[in-house]
Design a protein around this nucleic acid. Sequence first.
RNA 1: GGCCCCAUCAUCUAAUGGUUAGGAUAUCUCGCUUUCAAUGAGAAAACACGGGUUCGAUUCCCGUUGGGGCUACCA
Length: 490
Amino acid sequence: MIRTRFAPSPTGFMHVGNLKMAITDYLISKQSGGQFLLRVEDTDRTRMVEGAVENLLHTLNWVGIIPDEGVKLGQDGKVVQVGDKGPYIQSERLEIYHKYVDELLGKGHAYYCFCSKERLEEVRKKQEENKQATGYDGHCRDIILADAKKRIEAGEGAVVRMRTPKEGVTKFNDLIRGEVVFENKLVDDQVILKSDGFPTYHLAVVVDDHLMEITHVIRGDEWMSSTPKHLVLYEMFGWQPPLFAHLPLLLNPDKSKLSKRQGDVAVEDYIKKGYLPEAIINFIAFLGWNPGDERELFSLEELIKEFSLEKVTKSGAVFNLEKLDWYNKEYLKRMDNEELAGICRSLMMEKYGITNYELGIMGKILALEKERATTLIELVENVKFVFELPNYDSSILIWKKSNLEEAKNILQGLINSLDTFSVQDWDKTTLEQKVGEWIKEKGFGNGNVLSPLRVALSGQQNSPGPFEIAEVLGKEETINRLQTAIKKIT
RNA sequence: GGCCCCAUCAUCUAAUGGUUAGGAUAUCUCGCUUUCAAUGAGAAAACACGGGUUCGAUUCCCGUUGGGGCUACCA
């Protein structure tokens, strides 16, 4: 049974790269019938952002990824912690970390360091000048623990560093990349406890993953180089390390690590733009993974069944919005009209000031444009002509080599004909059939009639079919709009 | 600089020790059609380079180049 965790820092909105990690963690745990936990890593108090945890959780909820354990949204929408291995917020686990730091100190696997920031910077500068690997120079490595404690009691500030072995190698078998080897002498004596009493990521992640019985650590590639530090800590504690999988990063079009500067990176931005959760999940899951055959459309459920780390690509993937657009169109096209109406409800009410909202009617209106729109925002915008006929120029009523006079006659003829139709028969199929007969009878060309009709109904030269529009508009409004068009000509 | 990772069309990717190197997105052409969209048919488009290994390498090995990540009392 696999236990995975998504461990975000509450430093802002959910990044699409983070979502990719969360999705992967979720899929891997679910397909084994295991648990997916969410842990909040808030050990850097300087970067905390108000409301970030709520935002993260809401975003995850939106895509349908609900943690089994750890921090999640309760029934009332408030943040709660669930599970018997908590707390799941690192700032609430300080005592635990201190206990383990003491253990390391006692065993000689860690030591107090009193070096000033200035000294550390100087050391680093010199190393860079000499083209050496940067890292702590071991200045405080040999201070006797008792002496160090005295200095601390006397009020001196200190951090705790891990005493990494300087010989041999540390290796691990990454589930995606295979064996990776690091020389121990290059593993830095990393700070594990900061002078403010908070642990660093490296200590906290190891302690928590162990205590929370995480079996698979699935995280971004940027953590690869830190993994030996973590492995050394597992070794020091005498713990069995989990399995590691480092996922390739999401990239900007210029192939650098996906960043804010080159476009939107917050999942929230895409929600606001009107992308569907299904499209986002599918798109992101397919960045660096595919089922090996030619299927492209996968729901979360299907992904749980078929996703596998073995098939994850090793190289980073450009976050390609054109493909996202395509996915969104596909899901939009397939969506049930009433469901679509439900999703667009607030957008529609806001934009068109609608008060009584009938899903059936709204669904029909939205269906008019759903094959043409990329996003929900665009869809709602495109349907504007239903509520408000745009002010168009009469010249666009003319079809090809025809003229205004002819258009006017045709529209008038159309009114006379449509007026005889019963309201019961006012659906696109019947309309198309009857108007078709009328066109034949009069000997007009299709375009000569349907084009002016389209413009009269939509105010646009490009629009859905005129009969579909007429059905949605109803008989009265349809005739109304035809009369308006005629008035424009005279 | 040091360490680590990566390398197939513009992009996401598939496959293989011998293939016309496949699909998707985007682009273009044609068809359908009252427009647009959708859809159908097609086009253009890739194995980074150099050495090996091999009868034969895009595939395996090494190197080069290129790209990326890390290199904090941030995660």
